[in-house]
């Protein structure tokens, strides 16, 4: 039932501070979703029709090559997984898999897009929050690109 989800959604750090009206709109697109450890939340290259707000557990983003899969990032409680639903061509860029039993809000991307299109104020607010997450992710990757802990033999 969407109405029972709204107070819990309001508590999620990603949505904290949103107006009740905005939350009411979002709640219509949301449901609870449990993932067992190892279960996929999203698969690289497929239609990005969902995003997840993690409540418990941990989700890893994988970039897989033929030889091995590498974890490029992880998200824990309070964090967002999946932003491809808001940016064309709405296709997932990585595999997302639960590394432990995970509880998340599962938001329908098509539904969110529609609500954001209909209500630009909500759309702007949502995009601002996604942008913060994107910026943080970019900082993180750039910092790791510096290889700050160094390669003992290389230096």
């Amino acid at each position: 039932m969407p109405s029972t989800l709204q107070p819990a959604l309001a508590e999620h750090p990603f949505l904290r501070g949103m107006t009740p009206e905005a939350l009411a709109l979002l709640t219509g697109c949301a449901k609870n979703h449990r993932f067992a450890a190892g279960e996929y939340l999203a698969t690289h290259g497929t239609q990005a029709d969902r995003c997840f707000l993690i409540r418990k557990g941990r989700v890893a983003l994988y970039a897989a090559s033929a030889a091995k899969s590498v974890i490029v990032n992880t998200a824990g409680p309070g964090e967002l997984v999946g932003w491809s639903w808001i940016i064309t061509p709405y296709r997932y860029r990585f595999d997302a898999r639960a590394t432990e039993d995970t509880l998340a809000f599962d938001l329908d991307g098509a539904c969110l897009r529609q609500k954001c299109d209909d209500n630009p104020a909500l759309g702007y607010e949502f995009l601002k929050r996604v942008s913060i997450e994107l910026g943080r992710r970019l900082d993180d990757v750039q910092l790791r690109l510096l290889d700050v802990y160094g390669e003992p033999d290389g230096g």
């Binding site: 990032n73 309070g78 590394t99 790791r144």
Partner: peptide, 19 residues
């Protein structure tokens, strides 16, 4: 900073633990 698929913990710089 970098982990193979078998790692169950967090991946990201140390500040990613702050939230």
């Amino acid at each position: 900073d970098a982990a193979s698929g078998s790692w169950k913990g967090s991946v990201g710089v140390v500040t990613s633990l702050f939230p």
